[in-house]
Design a protein around this nucleic acid. Structure first.
Length: 423
RNA sequence: GGAGAGGUGGCUGAGCGGUCGAAAGCGGCGGUCUUGAAAACCGUUGAGGGUUUAUCCCCUCCCAGGGUUCGAAUCCCUGCCUCUCCGCCA
């Protein structure tokens, strides 16, 4: 959520910034609502003031043993007038709020212009794209004989589910272990275990609700739960409604969870293989930092994700998302794209974003600034470190051999009981 | 699932329906004293919002949402959460 005060004081700036995302803001409508709100709020507060002082007077008169009937007559109609004013105020505020919470975050000034992923800026490349003296297979063909079974996934659940059996299941677990241990032991993150079902408040806090409900799996239950689309939701909400002590900052959390996405609107996209599933494993990095530290933290967090790819010796590139491709809540996002020989292109395997105070405002996540002594909004960041399902694919395709076997990357062998190949 | 108790400021914990945003203690901050520190003493110390250059002033908030009332932390209803006991269970 944007700062309502920013809209009131710097409306031109906000309108212009939203244009970068291709959003036309109805400023006339907004201004009309705002002035209405102001007027109603003032009357409401005046009525409340009258009620408070009159009631106090009644109390005092009663204590002195005086007749309070004249005073009661005075406030006879106050209650109705106040109730009406409060109702109006609530309505107008709800209306303004609905307008505000539908607005995406303001982009960082370094974000390039552009409409789609074709306009993203490549920042760097790492690793050698492998060359094969045979026609490389994709992970579906490679996995067929090794326990990767999409038919079974479809039978048990539906399309976009998979069953892994044997060494491939182990390999995915090894990948997750490598990631967790690296982030915990080398990058200073605290391991967290979190609920996989979250309530509406939590999804509102991180920005999935109310606008993107159709992307989520909703659970029929009272109260309503949603299957988490990413560990970002439960982990970031750790600090919802919290004022963090200065000396506890920054907070760095890592969590491995399954993630669930409805993929509504993705019909026909990536229907083959494990690229786009309703359920996938991911290791997520979350940082809660002081505002002045977030730009630096964003670079570091992205590097932490890159370190995993480097340990696995997987070729990748780092991309700065353009204005049109940057997510709703984010000010700036780096994607890491791993090379997939089966597709002959780079595919997203991590997305690292700086949300600045956008989520913090929704969540009321604050820290006590020692300079002002006041609670102020924190900055939140997160990034995949990495998507484990896609990492499994990348390992399979990049480490494949002519006979269809897969060499296990050295970094993973300690987690595979020393196994060197999957045949 | 059944029975009971309870949710108040950073923490502990008071609070007859009426000067209660809330006693007291602890903690924090400032000061006096001290070579310095401790102790003692004095003062101060919640969050959000409106108006304002700022001060002032005003409004809201005692788990959440409704209700009763001129007036609710206090009474009523609903929900959520915590604790104790019984049952069940991994």
């Amino acid at each position: 959520m944007l700062d309502p005060r920013l809209l009131r004081t710097e409306l031109d700036f906000v309108v212009q910034q939203l244009t970068r995302r291709g959003i036309r803001f109805d400023r006339e409508h907004y201004l009309a609502l705002e002035s209405k709100r102001k007027a109603i709020q003032v009357t409401t507060q005046e009525l409340q003031n009258t009620r408070n002082s009159r009631s106090k007077a009644i109390g005092q008169a009663k204590a002195r043993g005086e007749d309070i009937q004249p005073l009661l007559n005075e406030v006879e109609n106050l209650g109705d007038a106040l109730k009406q004013a409060e109702t109006e105020l609530n309505q107008i505020q709800a209306e303004i709020n609905a307008m505000l919470e539908a607005l995406p975050n303001i982009l960082d000034e370094t974000v390039p212009a552009g409409k789609s992923e074709d306009d993203n800026t490549e920042i760097s490349r790492w690793g050698e794209i492998p060359t094969f003296d045979f026609e490389p297979k994709d992970h579906v063909d490679l996995g067929e004989s090794k326990g990767m079974d999409f038919e079974l996934g479809a039978k048990i659940a539906s399309a976009r589910f998979v069953v892994l059996k044997g060494p491939l299941a182990s390999l995915q677990r090894a990948i997750i272990q490598l990631m967790l241990n690296t982030h915990i032991n080398e990058h200073g993150y605290q391991e967290t275990y979190v609920p996989l079902l979250a309530n509406a408040d939590s999804l509102y806090g991180t920005g999935q609700l109310p606008k993107f409900e159709e992307d989520l799996f909703k659970v029929e239950h009272d109260p309503t739960f949603y299957l988490i689309p990413t560990a970002e939701v439960p982990v970031t909400n750790i600090v919802r409604n919290v004022i963090i002590n200065n000396e506890d900052m920054p907070l760095k959390f890592v969590a491995h969870t399954p993630c669930f996405r409805s993929e509504a609107g993705a019909y026909g996209r990536d229907v083959r293989g494990m690229i786009r599933q309703h359920q996938f494993e991911k290791v997520e990095l979350v940082q809660i930092v002081r505002p002045e530290d977030s730009a630096q933290a964003h670079e570091e967090l992205t590097q932490h994700a890159e370190n995993i790819l480097q340990k696995l010796k997987l070729p990748y590139r780092k991309v700065l998302l353009c204005a049109g491709d940057t997510g709703f809540s984010s000010t700036k996002t780096y994607d890491l794209e791993v090379w997939l020989p089966g597709q002959g292109k780079y595919r997203e395997i991590s997305s690292c974003s700086n949300f600045k105070d956008f989520q913090a405002r929704r969540m009321k996540a604050r820290w006590r600034n020692p300079e002002t002594g006041k609670p102020e909004l924190v900055h939140t960041l997160n990034g995949s470190g990495l998507a484990a399902g896609r990492t499994l694919i990348a390992v399979m395709e990049n480490y494949q051999n002519a006979d269809g076997s897969i060499t296990i990357p050295e970094a993973l062998r300690p987690y595979m009981g020393g196994m060197e190949t999957i045949g």
